[in-house]
Nucleic acid binder design. Structure first.
Lengths: 147, 147
DNA sequence: CTCGGCATCAGGAACGGTTACTGATCGGAG
DNA sequence: CTCCGATCAGTAACCGTTCCTGATGCCGAG
């Protein structure tokens, strides 16, 4: 699986002028290992297992480069660190306000909403993101028993 | 204008058990004076003009009480402090990534989107918010001249 | 009116996520 | 191989926000 991506990623690195260093590769690999939507800290801990000398700052810098050249995406919920994602396609994610788990919502598109937004503002829209919060099935059950 | 709201607000305070103190009233008034969508710091500075002894922490605590009882709303964009708003109705706001100005987008509703989301997730959705970023007319013009 | 108790407040310290800085190290062009 | 710019490790600083502590105000009971 990682090999399938390699070519694409290498290409994006070449075009951007950034170099695909071992640290940046390690961050990408960690992002693949961590299921779901890890935070910078999560990624840092995974990367550190293989190379204990990496610094948290390096992970942040790698993530920002990776996002800039479009090989990863990020989402931010208030009151919680930014989450990163190998899925670069536009899609919806919802975060459990109780346990923090982030999960993807399939088969829902913005549709004409974005168009209607562009028609009703003088701003040039550069980013539209639906921030969803809720209770995951586990937490919903638990919170009805013990709030 | 403030007087029209008073009754409603007093009512919400009474029902909640919180007291409508002078500091909380000052925060509300500041929120009315500041056009647009002020941050906690903005509000703090306005309140401080009339009462230099207020603490920033008090403003934060007042804002959280006011939000809890539903007389104000808040929105958060990453990389920028939370903005507060007297408009409690669901509505869209867009933030300029260059100058930070937040402005309201009229006449756009979520529509059936929220329904479709609920149908496609096992989560119980508690909050759905569209986070919009863009360039305001002024910044768009300036950024084409001097990026 | 006075007292006691509880919510609230001022002031400032602490926190968590992120960024900025600095000197060391790497890696590719020549 | 050597040199130079990009990258990195390590650490300090930053910023928005929360937490903590003792003081202050407010309200009801007596």
């Amino acid at each position: 699986m990682p090999h399938a991506l390699e070519g694409d990623i290498r290409e994006k690195f070449r075009r951007s002028g950034y170099t695909l260093t071992s640290q940046r590769r390690a961050v990408l690999e960690a992002l693949g290992e961590a299921k779901g939507h890890p935070s910078a800290e999560d990624i840092y801990l995974i990367v550190k297992k293989k190379n204990p000398r990496v610094a948290l700052g390096t992970v942040y810098q790698a993530l920002s480069v990776l996002e800039e050249i479009g090989v990863i995406g990020s989402k931010h919920w208030s009151e919680s660190p930014t989450r990163y994602d190998l899925n670069v396609e536009p899609h919806l994610d919802i975060r459990c306000v109780r346990c923090g788990e982030v999960s993807e919502i399939p088969s829902v598109e913005f549709g004409e909403l974005e168009e209607r937004i562009r028609d009703n503002t003088t701003y040039e829209v550069t980013r539209a993101m639906l921030v969803l919060e809720g209770l995951c099935p586990v937490c919903r059950r638990e919170s009805t028993l013990s709030p």
